[in-house]
Computed example of a mutant assay.
Amino acid sequence: MDDDVRPWDAAAPLVRAAQSGDALAMDDLLKLVTPYVTRLCAPIAPDDTADAVQESLLAVFRGLRGLRDPQAFYGWVRAVTVREAVRVARRSASETPADPEEIVRLRDLLPGIGGELSVEVRDLLARLPLRHRTVLVLRELEGMDERATAELIGVPEGTVKSRLSRARSSFRKAWTR
Protein backbone atom coordinates (compact mmCIF):
# COMPACT_ATOMS: atom_id res chain seq x y z
CA MET A 1 0.00 0.00 0.00
CA ASP A 2 1.19 3.50 -0.82
CA ASP A 3 2.55 5.38 2.21
CA ASP A 4 0.31 8.37 1.39
CA VAL A 5 -2.91 6.31 1.54
CA ARG A 6 -4.70 6.69 4.86
CA PRO A 7 -6.18 3.47 6.34
CA TRP A 8 -9.77 4.74 6.07
CA ASP A 9 -9.19 5.62 2.41
CA ALA A 10 -7.90 2.12 1.72
CA ALA A 11 -10.83 0.54 3.58
CA ALA A 12 -13.60 2.62 1.96
CA PRO A 13 -13.82 0.64 -1.33
CA LEU A 14 -13.82 -2.63 0.61
CA VAL A 15 -16.55 -1.30 2.89
CA ARG A 16 -18.74 -0.35 -0.07
CA ALA A 17 -18.17 -3.72 -1.77
CA ALA A 18 -18.83 -5.67 1.44
CA GLN A 19 -22.00 -3.67 2.08
CA SER A 20 -23.25 -4.67 -1.35
CA GLY A 21 -22.76 -8.36 -0.58
CA ASP A 22 -19.23 -9.09 -1.84
CA ALA A 23 -18.08 -11.90 0.48
CA LEU A 24 -14.44 -11.63 -0.60
CA ALA A 25 -14.41 -7.91 0.17
CA MET A 26 -15.88 -8.64 3.62
CA ASP A 27 -13.16 -11.22 4.21
CA ASP A 28 -10.46 -8.76 3.11
CA LEU A 29 -11.97 -6.03 5.29
CA LEU A 30 -12.03 -8.23 8.38
CA LYS A 31 -8.42 -9.27 7.73
CA LEU A 32 -7.49 -5.60 7.35
CA VAL A 33 -8.93 -4.54 10.71
CA THR A 34 -8.03 -7.63 12.77
CA PRO A 35 -4.64 -6.24 13.93
CA TYR A 36 -6.32 -2.95 14.96
CA VAL A 37 -9.12 -4.77 16.77
CA THR A 38 -6.59 -7.01 18.52
CA ARG A 39 -4.51 -4.00 19.59
CA LEU A 40 -7.61 -2.46 21.19
CA CYS A 41 -8.88 -5.66 22.80
CA ALA A 42 -5.61 -6.90 24.29
CA PRO A 43 -5.26 -4.27 27.04
CA ILE A 44 -9.00 -4.00 27.75
CA ALA A 45 -9.72 -7.73 27.95
CA PRO A 46 -6.28 -9.24 28.63
CA ASP A 47 -7.60 -12.54 29.98
CA ASP A 48 -10.02 -13.01 27.10
CA THR A 49 -8.40 -11.19 24.18
CA ALA A 50 -9.23 -13.87 21.62
CA ASP A 51 -12.90 -13.88 22.66
CA ALA A 52 -13.05 -10.07 22.60
CA VAL A 53 -11.49 -9.97 19.13
CA GLN A 54 -13.89 -12.61 17.85
CA GLU A 55 -16.94 -10.84 19.34
CA SER A 56 -15.75 -7.51 17.93
CA LEU A 57 -15.20 -8.87 14.43
CA LEU A 58 -18.58 -10.59 14.54
CA ALA A 59 -20.22 -7.30 15.55
CA VAL A 60 -18.41 -5.54 12.68
CA PHE A 61 -19.59 -8.23 10.27
CA ARG A 62 -23.20 -7.99 11.48
CA GLY A 63 -23.36 -4.21 11.66
CA LEU A 64 -21.43 -3.16 8.56
CA ARG A 65 -24.51 -2.68 6.39
CA GLY A 66 -25.69 0.04 8.79
CA LEU A 67 -22.51 2.10 8.42
CA ARG A 68 -23.46 5.13 6.33
CA ASP A 69 -20.03 6.67 5.70
CA PRO A 70 -17.26 4.27 4.59
CA GLN A 71 -14.68 6.95 5.56
CA ALA A 72 -15.88 6.60 9.19
CA PHE A 73 -15.11 2.88 9.19
CA TYR A 74 -12.15 2.94 11.62
CA GLY A 75 -13.93 5.19 14.13
CA TRP A 76 -16.97 2.94 13.96
CA VAL A 77 -14.79 -0.18 14.37
CA ARG A 78 -13.15 1.43 17.42
CA ALA A 79 -16.54 2.09 19.03
CA VAL A 80 -17.77 -1.44 18.30
CA THR A 81 -14.52 -3.00 19.51
CA VAL A 82 -14.35 -1.06 22.78
CA ARG A 83 -17.98 -1.94 23.53
CA GLU A 84 -17.38 -5.65 22.85
CA ALA A 85 -14.04 -5.78 24.67
CA VAL A 86 -15.55 -4.18 27.77
CA ARG A 87 -18.50 -6.59 27.62
CA VAL A 88 -16.18 -9.62 27.35
CA ALA A 89 -13.89 -8.32 30.12
CA ARG A 90 -16.86 -7.80 32.43
CA ARG A 91 -17.89 -11.38 31.84
CA SER A 92 -14.54 -12.64 33.09
CA ALA A 93 -14.82 -10.53 36.29
CA SER A 94 -11.16 -11.03 37.18
CA GLU A 95 -10.47 -7.44 38.19
CA THR A 96 -8.15 -6.55 41.05
CA PRO A 97 -8.14 -2.81 41.79
CA ALA A 98 -4.82 -1.10 42.46
CA ASP A 99 -4.16 1.83 44.81
CA PRO A 100 -3.85 5.40 43.37
CA GLU A 101 -0.56 7.27 42.78
CA GLU A 102 1.15 9.15 39.88
CA ILE A 103 1.53 7.49 36.41
CA VAL A 104 3.93 7.50 33.55
CA ARG A 105 2.47 7.98 30.09
CA LEU A 106 1.83 4.66 28.38
CA ARG A 107 3.10 5.90 25.03
CA ASP A 108 6.55 6.27 26.61
CA LEU A 109 6.44 2.59 27.54
CA LEU A 110 5.76 1.33 24.04
CA PRO A 111 8.81 -0.23 22.45
CA GLY A 112 9.75 1.18 19.06
CA ILE A 113 9.11 -2.07 17.20
CA GLY A 114 5.62 -2.81 15.98
CA GLY A 115 3.67 -0.80 18.57
CA GLU A 116 3.12 -3.86 20.76
CA LEU A 117 2.86 -3.36 24.50
CA SER A 118 5.60 -4.94 26.54
CA VAL A 119 4.72 -7.92 28.73
CA GLU A 120 5.21 -5.78 31.84
CA VAL A 121 2.82 -3.08 30.61
CA ARG A 122 0.19 -5.65 29.59
CA ASP A 123 0.47 -7.29 33.01
CA LEU A 124 0.05 -3.98 34.83
CA LEU A 125 -2.92 -3.01 32.66
CA ALA A 126 -4.54 -6.39 33.34
CA ARG A 127 -4.45 -5.64 37.08
CA LEU A 128 -6.33 -2.35 36.71
CA PRO A 129 -10.10 -2.35 37.12
CA LEU A 130 -11.84 -2.53 33.76
CA ARG A 131 -13.29 0.99 33.99
CA HIS A 132 -9.79 2.41 34.57
CA ARG A 133 -8.09 0.20 32.00
CA THR A 134 -10.58 1.24 29.31
CA VAL A 135 -10.12 5.00 29.74
CA LEU A 136 -6.34 4.63 29.99
CA VAL A 137 -6.14 2.65 26.75
CA LEU A 138 -8.42 5.05 24.88
CA ARG A 139 -6.62 8.17 26.13
CA GLU A 140 -2.98 7.09 26.12
CA LEU A 141 -2.81 4.50 23.35
CA GLU A 142 -5.58 5.68 21.05
CA GLY A 143 -4.99 9.39 21.74
CA MET A 144 -8.66 10.16 22.28
CA ASP A 145 -9.54 13.23 24.34
CA GLU A 146 -11.76 13.03 27.42
CA ARG A 147 -14.87 14.22 25.58
CA ALA A 148 -14.57 11.62 22.82
CA THR A 149 -13.81 8.90 25.37
CA ALA A 150 -16.87 9.88 27.41
CA GLU A 151 -19.08 9.72 24.33
CA LEU A 152 -17.65 6.37 23.28
CA ILE A 153 -18.13 4.61 26.62
CA GLY A 154 -21.32 6.45 27.57
CA VAL A 155 -20.30 8.24 30.77
CA PRO A 156 -19.97 11.93 31.69
CA GLU A 157 -16.69 13.66 30.83
CA GLY A 158 -15.99 14.28 34.53
CA THR A 159 -16.23 10.54 35.15
CA VAL A 160 -13.65 9.91 32.44
CA LYS A 161 -11.32 12.49 33.99
CA SER A 162 -11.58 10.98 37.47
CA ARG A 163 -11.17 7.42 36.17
CA LEU A 164 -8.20 8.50 34.11
CA SER A 165 -6.58 10.14 37.13
CA ARG A 166 -7.09 7.00 39.23
CA ALA A 167 -5.89 4.77 36.40
CA ARG A 168 -2.73 6.80 35.93
CA SER A 169 -2.07 6.76 39.66
CA SER A 170 -2.63 3.03 39.93
CA PHE A 171 -0.45 2.31 36.95
CA ARG A 172 2.41 4.46 38.25
CA LYS A 173 2.32 2.82 41.68
CA ALA A 174 2.37 -0.66 40.18
CA TRP A 175 5.12 0.31 37.71
CA THR A 176 7.47 1.62 40.41
CA ARG A 177 7.20 -1.49 42.59
Rank of each mutant, 00 (worst) to 15 (best):
P129S: 13
A150G: 11
A174N: 09
T176V: 14
E55K: 04
E146F: 04
A174M: 12
V82D: 09
V77W: 01
M1C: 10
T34H: 11
Q19V: 07
D123A: 14
R83M: 10
R163M: 11
A11G: 03
D9A: 05
L30A: 04
A12T: 05
R166C: 06
S92T: 10
P97R: 10
V86M: 14
P43C: 05
L14Y: 07
S92P: 02
S92G: 07
G75L: 08
A18C: 04
D47N: 13
R107L: 15
R168P: 02
H132R: 14
P46Y: 11
G115Q: 01
A72Y: 02
D69V: 06
E142K: 01
R62T: 12
A174Y: 08
L117M: 12
R133E: 01
F73E: 06
D48V: 08
G66D: 11
V88A: 10
L141P: 01
A89T: 06
T149H: 03
S92F: 09
L29M: 07
E151P: 00
A126R: 13
R122Y: 00
V33L: 03
A45Y: 02
L164Y: 08
C41R: 02
S94V: 14
Q71A: 13
I44C: 07
A72L: 08
E95P: 00
I153N: 05
E84T: 07
R122G: 03
V135T: 04
L32Q: 14
R90D: 14
L164C: 02
S162E: 14
L32F: 14
K173L: 15
L67R: 02
L58G: 11
D48R: 14
V5C: 03
L130Q: 12
L14E: 05
R105W: 15
R172A: 15
V121E: 05
A174L: 10
T81M: 09
L32R: 15
K173M: 11
P13H: 09
L32A: 15
D123Y: 07
V53I: 05
A12N: 01
G112L: 09
L30D: 04
L130S: 06
L164H: 10
A25R: 05
G75E: 09
K173F: 02
R166I: 06
P97E: 13
Q54K: 00
D28P: 00
A85R: 05
R16V: 15
R133D: 05
R168I: 08
V60A: 01
T34Y: 06
V80T: 12
R68G: 12
D123S: 13
G115H: 05
A25T: 00
P156K: 10
L109E: 12
A23N: 04
D51N: 10
L130T: 15
P97H: 09
D3P: 12
T34S: 14
R65I: 08
G75V: 06
L29P: 04
A89D: 13
L14V: 03
I103D: 14
R87N: 08
P111Y: 00
M144E: 06
S170G: 15
